[in-house]
Simulated assay, not measured.
Amino acid sequence: MSLNNILQYFVPKDRKFFPLFEQGSANLIKIAQVLVELLNSTDDNRKQALTKEIEDLEHKGDEITHQIFLELGKNFITPFDREDIHALASAIDDIADYIHGSSTRLQLYKINDITPAMKELGSLILQGCQDIDKAIIELKNLRNLRLIAESCVRINSMENQADTVFERAVADLFEYEQDAKVIIKYKEVLSALETATDKCEDVANVMESILVKHA
């Protein structure tokens, strides 16, 4: 019997937290998919509908996070450290918050010319959310620590790539754009998108901490 299989006898059987985390990570994929569609849409009515959908999904994520916190208060036995459960739920919620913030800024600032950098950041966010979902699914039984670790590595790599995209985009803004208002608007959106990738890395960091404790 492998070490990972032996570990299963020490992992409490959980019927509350992991289903909620899986709902949260599935919701992340959906909100990231809608963001990508928003960033690639040219129809104003469709953009408004997608922005509203992102808002609704962010509220759904808030409800899932709130339910996780309620379960923390009601349950003495948890599948892993309470601090890690709280940190993981908060980090997942933060990703949705910044995706929502990005879409809101696009609408409020009336930004119609979506740059390639914005689209690339949106795709990277989706990639990060997909890897989070893969890791969350594996986290519930800890049978394949390698798959979780690989997802975390991909998320870290994605975040590094997003940093490069963000820095180049901001540099181009300062070099080629003369209107200070436009610079501020675009930098705000780019910053929110890039921060969403940072929050993906926060999720990976929490999961890596959990892996260390169960290794």
Rank of each mutant, 00 (worst) to 15 (best):
M118I: 05
E150C: 00
D131N: 12
R82E: 15
D94R: 07
E83S: 11
V36E: 11
L72V: 06
T115G: 03
M118H: 00
L38P: 04
V36F: 02
L106N: 08
I92A: 00
I54S: 07
D133P: 01
G128E: 10
S123P: 00
T65V: 01
G101P: 02
P79Q: 13
K52F: 06
I132C: 08
A135K: 05
M118Q: 09
L147F: 09
I77L: 14
A89R: 03
Q33E: 15
N141G: 07
L70Y: 06
D62I: 01
L126P: 03
I136T: 08
E55L: 06
K110A: 11
T115W: 01
D93R: 04
N75C: 09
S90V: 01
G61C: 09
H100D: 15
D97C: 05
I92M: 15
I132L: 14
I111N: 08
I125N: 02
S90I: 00
K74P: 04
G122K: 07
H100S: 08
R143V: 05
C129V: 09
L39C: 09
S103K: 06
C152E: 08
I92Y: 05
L50F: 03
L147G: 07
K119Q: 15
L38F: 12
L139C: 04
T51R: 12
A135E: 07
G73D: 15
L142C: 09
Q130C: 03
N45H: 10
L124Q: 11
Y98K: 10
N156S: 15
L88K: 01
S41C: 10
R154P: 05
L38A: 05
H100W: 11
S102Q: 12
A32S: 14
L139S: 06
S103P: 03
L108M: 13
I155W: 03
K134R: 14
R146Y: 02
A117W: 03
Q33S: 10
I68C: 06
L106T: 03
T51D: 04
A149D: 14
D97R: 01
K119D: 11
G73L: 13
D113N: 05
Q67V: 02
D133T: 04
P116I: 08
I136H: 05
L28Q: 05
K52T: 14
R146D: 10
A149G: 00
I29T: 08
D81R: 15
D113R: 04
T51C: 10
A87Y: 09
K52R: 14
I125H: 00
S102C: 13
V34G: 02
I132S: 03
I125E: 00
I85H: 13
L57K: 14
L35F: 07
S103L: 04
E55P: 00
R105L: 13
D81L: 13
D113S: 02
D81A: 15
I111G: 00
L145H: 11
